[in-house]
């Protein structure tokens, strides 16, 4: 891919990733975040995090399916870091708007409420991934170890989806769309690996 094209695409990705934040800032500025702004902010940051996690998880299967798209890998770190960024904003709403920065209130929340526990787990597991996202860290750790560590994203994704299910009222089925996509992304991995193996065997025979 040309340097120019890559630069354009990266700029567009940045803009796309920043759109939810700009939308929230604009809404806060014009006092137009709907009847319950706290909930709007919470939901927008949470939903964006989940979407970005799905996008990072979509890159590997897409590359396997269409080798022509292998350049997509160049966008994974960006998407992953934006996922971490929105997860941090999501956390901040919880810390500030729900708990008024009170450590006691937060501690009680984490212990008592399983959907908070799940969300917190998902977030804490993202931290080492964000911290080791630099080229330097990859070199220092070695590709194999780095890869193993970054498998944690699967745990984060599962925890995040559980967090969503436990957060909505029992009987409400809205997280089903995200769950279906995540399931598909998870199943795509062994399916594509199996397909590749069969192809490789066919070639050797």
């Amino acid at each position: 891919m040309h340097r120019r094209t890559l630069l354009t695409l990266k700029t567009l990705t940045w803009l796309a990733c920043l759109t939810p934040l700009l939308w929230l800032l604009w809404g806060a500025f014009t006092n137009d975040l709907g009847p319950d702004p706290t909930h709007t902010i919470t939901f927008a940051t949470g939903r964006t995090t989940l979407r970005l996690i799905m996008l990072t998880l979509a890159i590997t299967p897409l590359r396997r399916l269409w080798p022509k798209l292998s350049w997509l890998i160049k966008f994974r770190r960006l998407l992953g870091l934006f996922a971490f960024f929105y997860a941090s904003l999501h956390m901040l709403t919880w810390v500030a708007l729900y708990n008024g920065f009170s450590p006691a209130s937060m501690a009680a929340d984490i212990v008592k409420r399983r959907f908070v526990t799940a969300g917190m787990t998902a977030y804490l597991l993202l931290v080492p991934l964000a911290a080791t996202s630099t080229n330097w860290a990859i070199r220092k750790m070695g590709g194999k170890r780095w890869n193993r560590l970054h498998k944690l994203i699967y745990v984060t994704a599962v925890c995040a989806i559980i967090h969503y299910w436990w957060g909505v009222k029992p009987g409400v089925l809205t997280p089903i769309g995200m769950t279906a996509i995540l399931t598909l992304l998870f199943l795509a991995r062994p399916a594509l690996a199996w397909k590749q193996k069969r192809k490789a065997r066919a070639v050797t025979v």
């Binding site: 009847p35 319950d36 706290t38 708007l97 729900y98 008592k112 409420r113 399983r114």
Partner: peptide, 22 residues
């Protein structure tokens, strides 16, 4: 008495800016 999934000690008043809701 808290709801299992959130505290009932405080509430968010609808229609106010986010920093004045609680």
């Amino acid at each position: 008495v808290d709801h299992p999934r959130w505290s009932q000690k405080t509430e968010r008043r609808i229609g106010l800016p986010f920093y004045e809701q609680r």
